[in-house]
Design a protein around this nucleic acid. Structure first.
Lengths: 356, 356
DNA sequence: CTGAAAGCGCTTACAG
DNA sequence: CTGAAAGCGCTTACAG
């Protein structure tokens, strides 16, 4: 079986390969000046031979790959879970918008994001989830972004930022989110509040940020938000959890048990994400605590299922799908116009349901 | 800024580009016979110039792309949701195993899967979710698989099959699953059973399959499994639902409401998937039905969150992550050995929790 | 052990 | 309007 390439087509149509190429590349400036007659001949041959231009050869000539990279995790930060619920939602937005524009998505895992761009395996890159409290790779990453900025690469960072370097970014307004949560807490007159984040040595930085905003908004209101009811990270009295790449449910369970056993249980627990909240709720049921009468629970993210809990979870809705879509839209613009910039801070919605 | 290619490196090291290439391709047979001295020189130059071999040039030379395609949906079957919960779990397995083997994953959406393989944009392809009751593209797809088989392409189909063509496949044993569900139903002495699948004109074929197995196992046992309590597909009395690309929760809600209003509510509802089950449960709570005392609910799939419901959901656990991993392992084998075949039927676990 | 050269399959100035 | 030719950046027989 002979491989059919551009010259097979050219022979079949009785023209040169250059002509075939011109006809097959409508974007080419030269495409216009081709006679209808030859065009018809060539197109017929293409159809009959079912010719597919080689992807790699086109790539080599510098054409776009029509591929957007989505970087799933930085080295050392990735655990057993490849794609979290949260990441999947972002990917939903990315995928929908990409496919609308006839782009595909390459999932990238590993150390070297620069490489994919440098080598033009992808046209653009979306990153998320590397914002740890203490990221050992911060230096390297800063360099990477400077490299990207210098070359006007199309990239976007979602819900993460690195001090000291400007990046194209989309993020949720944690301050606004915590302000809304604080209002709810005060309106409900919950007299004490706790916070449960990830019980790992190196949790996402968001959690710490949100804790400090919540402190700010609750300060002087009479509502107690004490240090020992704030479980985030590790050390001190915080229960140790083996990290098994879970979806954080276990952090919630462990935290609630710890609070109950040490008689620290607050009236309301604010959680770093919805999975933690589900874990908190499950453990609360084990202790026969009534939600929301005895314990209120507030989540974060707005995962697909949390409206179907019993009671349904009050949570801060992050429009993650929208983040994905906006990211792709920006990247497509940036590909056209290297000067395009993006710096979007989105205010989230607090959705009150049955747990408060 | 000059672009640095293989010849920049060659010049810097004072050797020919062929030598550079040989040193950089450890797999090459010629790699062994290169002197340590030149190797050191070249490697130093590579490091210093931070040289990255062009991905596209390598591709053109026929090297592997180190990319596995994951096809998300067939044309016309895809709705607003790009990646369902179910698909995300498969992808988790694929991604983990791929990245362990230094492969990346390309998400493919659109009409033409053959193209990606033919054109060698990917080394292998994984497909799922196209098994509709009435797939208008069945003919085309059959041709595609025959094309793949003829060329010994590495591909796998997960949880879908097409009558009349043999494909490399991994699937769940629906018969075993329904046998387990039937045993549970009989043991609990539920006197009547209903089924809720997708309330769309063209539901997944699994649901119909499972209904018929359940019929078989319940037949003659005295447990009633009547036609009018089987809601799957559309037509007849089945409530019409606008498809909004949801995760099926709404099917569950609509179905339960329909059953209650028409006084058809059975003692136990078996659901086509977990999202449907969550919808059923939520609607049941609205009617103040007690689960499991008045109504038992059984899900399918084993999504991450369903153990955290209240009560936690009894469901059939599909090892979807494992399916993804096995698929990748097979593909890597198939790349080495074109004669490799795969036909795996996996028995699922029924996990009994609070809803039965 | 290494170099010079052919060629992977295209696109695109350059001629005519 | 179309052809002949250069070249994208590599890999790999072929010589030596």
């Amino acid at each position: 079986m002979k491989k059919i390439g551009i010259r097979t087509v050219a022979e079949a149509a009785g023209v040169s390969i250059g002509t075939v190429s011109r006809i097959l590349n409508p974007d080419s400036a030269m495409n216009i000046k081709v006679s209808e007659k030859t065009r018809a001949k060539v197109l017929a041959a293409v159809g009959q031979l079912n010719y597919q231009p080689s992807y790699s050869a086109r790539l080599l000539r510098g054409t776009s790959t029509r591929t957007i990279g989505f970087a799933l995790s930085m080295p050392q930060t990735h655990d057993a879970v490849y794609l979290s619920n949260y990441t999947a939602r972002i990917l939903n937005g990315i995928g929908a918008e990409a496919s609308r524009n006839d782009y595909q998505v390459l999932l990238i895992q590993g150390e070297d994001y620069r490489h994919y761009m440098d080598v033009k395996r992808i046209d653009a890159l979306i990153m998320t989830g590397f914002q740890l409290n203490d990221n050992p790779l911060e230096g390297e990453m800063r360099e990477m972004f400077e490299h990207f900025n210098r070359r006007d690469y199309p990239y976007v960072v979602i819900n993460s930022h690195l001090p000291g370097v400007t990046t194209a970014s989309i993020e949720i307004d944690n301050e606004a989110a915590m302000s809304r949560i604080a209002s709810l807490i005060l309106r409900k007159r919950f007299e004490s509040v706790g916070f449960v984040g990830e019980l790992t040595p190196n949790p996402q930085r968001h959690h710490a940020e949100r804790i400090s905003y919540l402190k700010k908004f609750l300060d002087g209101t009479g509502c107690r938000f004490e240090e020992r009811c704030i479980l985030n990270g590790s050390g001190g009295d915080i229960p140790e959890l083996p990290r098994i790449g879970s979806y954080n449910h276990d952090d919630g369970k462990a935290a609630l048990r710890y609070l109950v056993r040490n008689q620290l249980l607050p009236r309301c627990i604010v959680c770093g994400n919805d999975n933690i909240a589900l874990g908190v709720m499950q453990a609360a049921f084990e202790y026969r605590l009534r939600i929301p009468e005895e314990l209120a629970v507030i989540g974060f993210d707005g995962d697909y299922n949390v409206g179907y809990m019993n009671p349904p979870l009050t949570t801060v809705e992050q429009p993650l799908e929208e983040f994905g879509r906006i990211a792709v839209q920006f990247l497509l613009r940036k590909i056209e116009d290297p000067a395009a910039v993006l710096s979007l801070m989105k205010e989230p919605l607090l959705i009150e349901r049955g747990t408060t």
